[in-house]
Design a protein around this nucleic acid. Sequence first.
DNA 1: ACATTTGTTAACCAAATGGTTAAACCGAAT
DNA 2: ATTCGGTTTAACCATTTGGTTAACAAATGT
Lengths: 204, 204
Amino acid sequence: MAESNKENTENKILNAAKAIFQSKGMDGSRMQEIADKAGINKALLHYYYRSKQVLFEAVFSNAFSLIAPQLNKILDSDLDLFDKIRGFAKNYISFISKHPYLPNFVINELHRNPGFILKLKEKKEFPNFEKFTNQINEYVEKGLIRPIAPEQLFLNLISLNLFPIVGSPLFKLLLNLDDITYKKLIEDRKTEVAEFIIHSIKIK
Amino acid sequence: MAESNKENTENKILNAAKAIFQSKGMDGSRMQEIADKAGINKALLHYYYRSKQVLFEAVFSNAFSLIAPQLNKILDSDLDLFDKIRGFAKNYISFISKHPYLPNFVINELHRNPGFILKLKEKKEFPNFEKFTNQINEYVEKGLIRPIAPEQLFLNLISLNLFPIVGSPLFKLLLNLDDITYKKLIEDRKTEVAEFIIHSIKIK
DNA sequence: ACATTTGTTAACCAAATGGTTAAACCGAAT
DNA sequence: ATTCGGTTTAACCATTTGGTTAACAAATGT
């Protein structure tokens, strides 16, 4: 029972830390708040994770490692390019809608502590763009799509999918939309984005 | 001389605060650090701005008020839709490249303190989308572009322009690119993005 | 010249915060 | 029953941090 209890506590800590860190960032989060949310004592928090920094890195690392595989799952598949784009939009928007803090969290902390990047580069599996890149070049050669640098297409794909979610408070404010209307707008994008991209590159 | 000295001090404070707040956010910034950067005493900082919150709001408000006019300047002009899109891409990417922290700063703090949104709504001039919206609908009716919701086109336009800059640390990491290569990629986007959009919507 | 207001500083303070310590608790092996 | 390991807690500590105070300096008005 000790074993499962330990597991349990560790889980409670990680979940609490994830919630707090991802919504308030490293600087805005308090160890006490994390302890409270996990239903434990602050000292116990330090028993499991020596310092705030260590706990934070555990959460961050975990968050980051969600991104790459999710990207790969689609980019590195055997689908036809157009279906890949469609699948990506549909799946990734759903995924990010479930973890809306994730991209912002990662971007902020990557920015806050650039040294962290090196650590990630060593350890983490990265998305494999080779297949995607080759596929695009192939489509260009065959005259199926107009010439475009694969990196640019990738940037477009990600930007169109993520930014409306990452920047939702800004967009809601600028467009003067309420939550429900904005949500509907995002929902529409699950198909809208793919068609937008395909229209742009496909040669009819 | 007292007057200009005051102006001078106030300016030094605002510039310092802007630099610190925009790169570290509200929580990550220290009043002492701002005072140091402004070359003054911490007490003097509080003499000019009663509290951290007040100083922060001054900086934030100022930052935010840069965004809307910049948007309007282009969206609300009399240009042909396609030229408008081209102009937007070229100008806005330049603008944001000069203030790369801005969007992220605004988004984060909007998220951190949603109550702030209300204050902004009252005071600030907002981008005027009417002209842009009408123009798009007009182009659709005339059969010059395929049907698209103006809000979606707006989201696309902003996302394609901003996100590669906002998310640069993430993209550099994912694509495994160094600063120079990435900068070149962004530079290319000043024309690339507009063509991408126009290809997508224009009916030939 | 003198008083008054405005700008500036050094020293100080209370609260918050990350982290530590020493003791208590608890299940399992002896 | 007792010891022993890991787990958990309450109380504590040192430092950081936003903010204040009181005194000094520099303008400004009369």
